[in-house]
């Protein structure tokens, strides 16, 4: 697209002055001419483009009519205060929904706590298991349990890269396993999505996972 000012070089000086006057005049705020407005509205009413107060708008018959309403430009009047309030409600609501469903997704990841002998992934020796933990602020997270000699460093989880989710896929042998998450090498935390082991022998609860092999428990 060519800038209009590029063409000014071809105009005479008086033409440039004239252009500047037109532009300034255009930008000047003027009071609304009420009589002119009424004249324009009367003309539009005669052509059928304006609906008088209390009169039903004329609709074209058939599908194209009501479809046409959806796809044509419609005047919308909004009070700024109400519009801001609606926007705030929308943002808060969407944030709440997002947090709710994000949380559900985190805790509902199957942790293989339910035996499923029919699982195609189950083998005679164990089943694949996914551990997921939401750990805001943690710099490293690992899993320690019966299946890795309770070594707090041996089985690190992977940070997903977005948010504060940590994830780990393992194949565990069939049986009942107790485990805990270890945050930053020192904080032991049970899995919020799994059943708890009842005893707190060493000062904290563990979680329990029941892994089913192809032969069932």
């Amino acid at each position: 697209m060519t800038d209009a000012r590029d063409d000014d070089t071809r105009h005479e000086p008086h033409d440039r002055d004239f252009d500047e006057q037109v532009r300034a005049d255009y930008l000047l705020a003027r009071p609304i001419d009420a009589a002119a407005r009424e004249r324009v509205l009367a003309q539009l009413a005669e052509t059928g483009d304006v609906v008088a107060k209390g009169e039903e708008p004329k609709r074209a018959s058939g599908t194209s009519g009501w479809l046409g309403w959806w796809f044509s430009a419609q005047p919308i009047a909004l009070r700024p205060a109400w519009a801001l309030a609606a926007l705030a409600v929308l943002l808060v609501g969407s944030g709440w929904l997002g947090a709710r469903f994000a949380t559900k997704a985190r805790v509902s990841v199957p942790v293989a706590s339910v035996p499923d002998a029919a699982s195609p992934a189950a083998t005679a020796t164990g089943s694949p298991v996914t551990f997921v933990l939401r750990a805001p602020g943690a710099t490293r997270v690992s899993v320690a349990g019966d299946f890795n000699n309770w070594d707090a460093e041996a089985t690190p989880m992977t940070h997903t890269g977005t948010g504060d989710l940590w994830i780990l896929n393992l194949t565990l042998p069939r049986g009942v396993h107790r485990y805990s998450f270890v945050l930053d090498g020192s904080e032991w935390r049970p899995d919020p999505s799994a059943p708890l082991a009842a005893d707190e022998t060493f000062g904290g609860h563990n979680s329990v996972i029941v892994v089913n092999g192809a032969n069932g428990l």
Partner: peptide
Amino acid sequence: NLVIPLVVLCDLVAR
């Protein structure tokens, strides 16, 4: 098999 009933029982006590 009683593994799951026992796991549920322990979980309830822990809670």
